[in-house]
Design a protein around this nucleic acid. Structure first.
Lengths: 193, 193
DNA sequence: GACATTATTGAATATATAGTCAATAATTAT
DNA sequence: ATAATTATTGACTATATATTCAATAATGTC
């Protein structure tokens, strides 16, 4: 009954997301997005409405992927603590990777939180969800005696998450692997035994 | 022998720095800088040459102020550990302050490290200097027996600095004071006894 | 095959933005 | 005073950027 779309919305979103992730909202212009998505302006605007809306959709896409990815790491072993360790090591390996652009949520928090309440709230939603997931897994760890009972899962989760954000910042400084390993080992050591 | 400047370079730099600090390089336009500095385009360009150069000068200004400020905190008590604690508490209080824009070095690392090697190197220079200052103070702490001999000052300094950067990110999320306090207390606890 | 509907194309547009410049003004030296 | 030098002013410019739109194309329905 009408001409069908030639593009796949998820694919386009993913391509736009990669550009925004690498260069931020203000550091990205529509020409880059038009090239990356291989859509013409009309199609891109037809699909998303504006640069703002496209950014928002890309951020959402990243947030959802991020939640899934963290969830899969947090349950990659039967042992909660072993899973958390694996997640931290995964982040550490991303941080040493020159081609990685850190965490899009963290980047966006820094670029746009002070300017857009709507963006800030969305970023917070995802970051808090990750915090809750980690806290839940730390409760599991306490339940099976992998961490001591005097540790507050919520507080420890906040601390670990905070240090992971610090690692994301560190990733922008071309850090030596030794430094990244030293930091992540200290973080892992907090978990115990 | 010539018309004297009506502005004070340091003052202008400080005003420009505040704008870039709050809204980043790409999030700031020349009109904002012209308003904030109360210089006309000609004067501003006469003084700094370009938006790029002005940003670089503002970043440098921040870096130098930052070094001085951290140095003064690290030696605000005779006790090295007590001084480090005071610094962490200072950062924590900035993080809970709604009007604070985090650390300009951290913000710039995230916005521009992937785009300009020159900027990345300058940011790294300042961040590394702060790391060395902290490591030196941790050596002092070890010397006077405030921290145990099996702790590596350099590694611990990296870890503390990393978590402070994470606190800067946290500051963009309108965090509860309770969360900031919980995290900074855990960080402080690492130093202790 | 004509029609209705939606997608695609890419040139065009309005605005924002970084940067320039000629005229003018303030100072010091002679 | 006059000249030499540098600072200030703010209108102007060239370019970049987000966005629009009229023409065209592809589908399903009658």
């Amino acid at each position: 009954m009408a001409r069908p779309k030639e593009y796949d919305r998820e694919t386009v979103l993913s391509e736009a997301m990669n550009v925004f992730w690498a260069t931020g909202y203000f550091g990205t212009n529509m020409n880059q997005l038009i090239k990356a998505t291989r859509l013409n302006p009309g199609s891109l605007y037809g699909a998303f409405g504006s640069k703002d809306a496209l950014f928002f959709a890309a951020l959402d896409h990243y947030g959802k992927m991020s939640i899934e990815s963290v969830q899969s790491m947090l349950y990659c072993h039967d042992s909660p603590v072993e899973s958390i360790r694996a997640w931290i090591r995964m982040v550490a390996s991303e941080v040493t990777d020159k081609d990685n652009h850190g965490c899009f949520l963290v980047n966006t928090a820094i670029e746009l939180s002070g300017r857009s309440h709507e963006i800030q709230e969305r970023v917070n939603t995802y970051l808090e969800e990750i915090g809750r997931m980690l806290a839940t897994r730390l409760e599991d760890a306490r339940g099976v005696g992998e961490i001591s009972n005097d540790k507050d899962p919520e507080a420890v989760a906040s601390f670990i998450l905070c240090t992971i954000w610090g690692l994301r910042v560190l990733g922008e400084t071309s850090p030596s692997e030794a430094k990244v390993v030293a930091i992540s080992n200290q973080l892992i050591a907090l978990l115990g035994k």
